[in-house]
Simulated scan of single mutants.
Amino acid sequence: MTGIYLFDLAARHARYLAVRQAAIAGNVANANTQGYRARDVAPFAQVLARTGLDLAVTASAHVETAGTGIPVRPVPAREGWDVLETASAVSLEQEMLKASDVSRDHALNVGVVKSFHHMLMSAVRSGG
């Protein structure tokens, strides 16, 4: 059995969130660029699936994971909301919702890492 490296997983998730935020920022910056197509990254579950990590699922509500690499893909025209009548295929409302998702996920990631770090430091201080 191999160990689960929470800090490594959190670091991969943080890198994923940084790439996703950059893609969202690029979409917003190019919202008025004629012919520009909105971009997004693959969901983190797909990214994690490529890492080859196998976690045991003991209940149907548990998440199955694996993956790393963060491919950027164009957003299909029918995915998401209708596009406003502009020269581009970027919905600013949808991009802002994605940005808030990234912010929420980042806050959760930081909270988990802080809690795990605190738990490790408590174990080290108590000697075991």
Rank of each mutant, 00 (worst) to 15 (best):
L53V: 11
A77R: 13
A56I: 05
R20N: 11
L9N: 05
R37W: 10
G67F: 07
T68K: 08
G52Y: 08
V41M: 06
A38G: 01
L48P: 02
Y16T: 05
R104S: 12
Q46F: 10
S100M: 14
E93H: 05
M96Q: 09
G69T: 10
S100I: 14
T51F: 08
A11H: 10
R12Y: 04
T51W: 06
A107Y: 03
V72L: 14
Q21K: 04
E85F: 01
A42G: 00
V75K: 09
Q94N: 11
A18S: 15
P71A: 14
M96E: 05
V90K: 08
G52N: 08
N27M: 06
A25P: 03
D101G: 00
A22T: 07
R12P: 00
T86D: 03
A25V: 11
T68L: 09
A10S: 14
S103G: 05
S88N: 10
K98L: 15
G80E: 04
A49V: 03
N32M: 09
Y36G: 07
A89C: 00
V63W: 11
A59K: 08
L108E: 10
Y16E: 02
W81N: 10
W81K: 07
T65H: 10
R39P: 00
A14R: 09
T65W: 12
L9T: 05
H62T: 12
P74T: 11
F44T: 03
Q21C: 02
L9C: 00
E85P: 05
I70G: 00
R73V: 15
G52V: 06
D82I: 04
G52K: 03
V19T: 14
P43N: 03
A45P: 02
I70V: 15
H106T: 12
D101T: 01
D82H: 07
T51C: 01
V90L: 07
L9I: 13
A87H: 01
T51E: 14
A11I: 04
G69F: 03
R12G: 01
L97H: 08
A31R: 12
V83H: 04
A66H: 13
A29N: 14
T65C: 00
T33H: 01
R104P: 04
L55Y: 06
G67D: 05
A49Q: 14
R39H: 06
M96A: 13
V75P: 00
S60M: 12
A45Q: 14
R37A: 12
P74R: 04
A31T: 08
A45K: 11
S100D: 09
H62S: 11
G52P: 07
M96S: 09
L97F: 13
Y36W: 13
A77D: 12
V90A: 02
D82A: 09
D101Y: 00
L17C: 04
V41D: 09
N32F: 13
R50M: 11
R50H: 12
V47R: 06
L48D: 04
V19N: 11
V63G: 00
A61Q: 13
E85W: 01
E93P: 00
T65I: 14
T33W: 03
A59M: 01
D54T: 07
V28T: 02
A38T: 06
A18D: 15
D54M: 04
Q34L: 09
L84V: 06
H62L: 09
R20K: 15
A66P: 13
Q34T: 13
